[in-house]
Design a protein around this nucleic acid. Sequence first.
DNA 1: TCATATTTGTACGTATGTATA
DNA 2: GTATACATACGTACAAATATG
Lengths: 222, 222
Amino acid sequence: MINKELNPMEKIPSEQKLSNQLGVSRNTIREAIRTLEQEGVLYCKHGVGTFVIGSKDSLKTNITTLESSTNIIKSQDYFPGTQNVDTKVMKAPSNVKSKLSLEEHSNVFYIERVRTADTQPVVYVEDYIPYIDEMENEYREKYYESLTEFLGKFEMEFSFSICSIKAVISDEKVMKKLELKEKSALLLLQQTHYSDKGIPVLYSDSYYLSDKFEFNVIRRKG
Amino acid sequence: MINKELNPMEKIPSEQKLSNQLGVSRNTIREAIRTLEQEGVLYCKHGVGTFVIGSKDSLKTNITTLESSTNIIKSQDYFPGTQNVDTKVMKAPSNVKSKLSLEEHSNVFYIERVRTADTQPVVYVEDYIPYIDEMENEYREKYYESLTEFLGKFEMEFSFSICSIKAVISDEKVMKKLELKEKSALLLLQQTHYSDKGIPVLYSDSYYLSDKFEFNVIRRKG
DNA sequence: TCATATTTGTACGTATGTATA
DNA sequence: GTATACATACGTACAAATATG
């Protein structure tokens, strides 16, 4: 639709002009603009105009978009892999129990994995899933392309997460998992994932090697 | 308007019902819902319904909202303060020059500060502002409540930032500034701030003590 | 300082399409 | 298949913020 190359921080034509040019209603233009604003591509200022703010590399890894580690690794031009997968059924730790709104004595299906970028370990993930009968067997017997696909089998697809962002120093366990020679700074994302009906279906702790990954976000004045 | 207490993950009435109940058009309801969705308070699912996802403490410090360090400190129930302010006019470092789209040999006004929470150092900030005549004198002669107020004097108010989130280990300099006894994990926010017309007006590196601060974000599936 | 034009924000109404239950 | 609910789209009017002269 739009043939013109848009440069970062450039002012785009007014809603009225775009409406005339493209032959659609101003309301439709507004909806489109609002969607792009939500994605961090545009910025609108009352009485002034609308501006392009998102260049591709300024939002290489937009933290507000919930992507699989696989896609995040790909987006940084690495080849994704997985190693050291370990699973078990366990009593839910109390913090997990709280995050997933589980009853006392509930079990969770625990999966830990190391994700690699070009064979180098870059992310260590611990997943906690409310346990459902036969989950462990299902996981062991079949091959799943992704955790999302596995959760789908149990009607536990997630569509958003509430995420807490922290910085931590690698402890012994994580150093071993990520094959670190010395203590390093890690970006820790603690996330509770919810289904589209608001049911918590997954809690995860993800440790990202911070010198390999950077996350981006557009922040707007309150 | 809304008297009912809303619980997290609760389904709210349909747009049509809210429209009737509140006596406003469905379009208006939609706009309001969309704004709240943008803020991370609601989540809409086509053909299903709209759900409350944001409880107050799950988004205590929403990283998508650009707040002053002062307000972030306040929001975590601490009393904010400032110490060790140091300023100088300097040749723009090359990374800053690039971020602020400055010409070769441009000067910047550099401000470094330690922000405190209940007198304890918690954030170390380095600010780089494109230099304008008399900026240094203005800063020294008058008292400014905030950097925002100071920038306002030069018509350099910012309204959003593009932020890169990293985890780092405190180096000697930062350890001294934050009075750290041992190396700690710090959350580093590297931000280019823009005016509402898309002009870069401030670049800053902020080092947050990660055990005092946590940032939150709602992530949605792409 | 004031009036006017421009631009985005909000609001109303209506209709049809698409996804889910 | 039917009903419900959100998504998209058209049209219109006026308010509020900003820019311009």
